[in-house]
């Protein structure tokens, strides 16, 4: 019934990217939260943004794997279902202490994603071979990404730190001005959804190259970090905000430059009117 339209050509195999993305995201989350706790500081919150970048890079390759089958509804729908299922898993995980939370998020997202994948593949009868696996992966991506962004904005990912701000005097907690209370989580939600679906949506078509898409994914991730760093002014100390801003702006400038070079490389290959390149391998 469904014919795979474009096969993954060359580049890094999807499994490698998946494990690398999962490990990098988890390590960054633990580094950020752990170092913040250990030094009783806010300075290491930017590791959350790096976890989000790792998750976005993994998620964009998952979306490429799924959408090359032609799902018929457009690439953005996968980004939306990724964050939609991810936010539910992530917020349940925030109930646990910082050393369990990322693992709990992965496990809960796996369960939710597997059930949604089963619904899409068997009940709705999409009959796409990678559907169940991809839905599971994008749910984990959404949960880890949102967890990273909340770590970056508020220096932690426990429900208590997300739902209450110590406030000016530090006596009465300010619930309305917190990450969840002020609905900054909704901004993080939609920033993440756009960042994860944009890379493949923008680079698909003839002469698609994996390295160009992944570089764009990293660029989208660092671009997402910049507004989160600005929003963290409300929650973090000024030095921590400056560190976050420097990391995100530097990362964005580097990846944007790299992406520009890769785009020029592929555009030149196209302008020379060669036949569409069919990379070897895989």
């Amino acid at each position: 019934m469904t014919v795979k339209v474009e096969k993954i050509e060359g580049g890094t195999p999807h499994n490698t990217i998946m494990w690398a993305g999962l490990l990098a995201a988890l390590v960054c989350l633990y580094l950020g939260a752990g170092l913040n706790v250990m030094f009783n500081a806010y300075t290491f919150s930017f590791f959350g943004g790096l976890a989000a970048v790792a998750a976005i890079v993994w998620g964009s390759n998952t979306i490429k794997t799924l959408c090359s089958y032609g799902i018929g509804t457009g690439v953005p729908s996968v980004g939306m279902i990724s964050l939609g299922s991810g936010v539910i898993a992530m917020l349940l995980a925030t109930r646990f202490s910082w050393y369990y939370a990322p693992i709990v998020a992965v496990i809960v997202a796996t369960i939710i994603g597997a059930i949604i994948g089963y619904m899409a593949n068997d009940v709705i009868m999409m009959k796409i071979p990678v559907m169940r696996r991809s839905m599971t992966e994008v749910a984990i991506v959404g949960a880890l990404m949102l967890m990273g962004l909340s770590l970056m904005a508020t220096s932690g990912y426990s429900l208590l730190s997300l739902a209450s701000n110590p406030g000016l005097l530090g006596i009465l907690p300010n619930y309305g001005g917190s990450f969840i209370g002020a609905s900054i989580i909704a901004v993080a939600f939609i920033l993440g959804a756009i960042a994860v679906q944009h890379p493949f949506n923008a680079t698909l078509g003839p002469s698609w190259q994996q390295d160009r898409m992944l570089m764009l994914a990293a660029e989208c991730g660092f671009l997402t970090m910049i507004p989160l760093a600005l929003m963290s002014i409300a929650f973090l100390s000024i030095p921590a905000v400056i560190v976050s801003l420097i990391v995100s702006v530097a990362g964005w400038l580097y990846t944007y430059g790299q992406y520009l070079c890769l785009s020029q490389r592929d555009a030149a290959a196209w302008l020379d009117a060669k036949p569409i390149r069919e990379p070897e391998g895989h």
Binding site: T73, G84, I88, L91, S183, A186, F189
Partner: peptide, 20 residues
Amino acid sequence: SLAGIFAIGIFLVNAVLAAY
């Protein structure tokens, strides 16, 4: 805010499943 973000999440999951 929590109820709103969950409503959006569950809404998007159901809407995308129907879209598929």
